[in-house]
């Protein structure tokens, strides 16, 4: 979970080991794929945030098909042709699909990039909102 590898992590997280033993689910969810996302839900709105440092908005592709949202991003290398003392950052192309809990309004999707964080705002479609049925 946004963490660096520490040798002791694997040794000391006993709970993690036990969990993995039983159902292969890690408590820290560390082995997820890029881009890392968080999902927030409130009333009829869903907000999805993805970590995308060094990715310009033109290299992000957000697609909505039915109720599946796909985030695709290409993080281009910014390596200089010079000797490196340290190389810790990672680059590459990432793609992730998120199945949304309900049908969202495709005309009201809002995606913004700010300081390396992609935020996508979605709203529940009118057609799936509860409706009062009048009795004749």
């Amino acid at each position: 979970m946004f963490t660096t590898y520490d040798l002791l992590d694997d040794v000391l997280t006993l709970r993690d080991m036990v969990d993995r033993f039983f159902d292969e689910v890690s408590t820290t969810r560390r082995r997820v794929e890029f881009p890392y996302i968080n999902v927030y839900e409130k009333d009829d709105d869903i907000v999805i945030r993805a970590i995308a440092p060094g990715v310009s908005s033109s290299d992000v592709n957000v697609q909505l098909a039915d109720n599946t949202l796909t985030i695709e991003m290409n993080r281009k290398e910014d390596y200089a042709d010079k000797p490196y003392l340290r190389k810790e950052r990672e680059f590459g192309s990432y793609k992730k699909s998120i199945k949304l809990p309900y049908y969202v309004d495709p005309d009201r999707v809002e995606a913004t990039m700010n300081n390396g964080i992609l935020t996508i705002k979605l709203t529940k479609h009118e057609s799936v909102k509860p409706r009062k049925i009048t009795i004749n």
Binding site: A80, L85, R89, I117
Partner: peptide, 16 residues
């Protein structure tokens, strides 16, 4: 990432 040129050191850090 840190690299060195003739005139400077350049450090790039991911801080989203």
């Amino acid at each position: 990432d840190i690299y060195e040129t003739d005139n400077e050191y350049v450090l790039k850090a991911d801080m989203p």
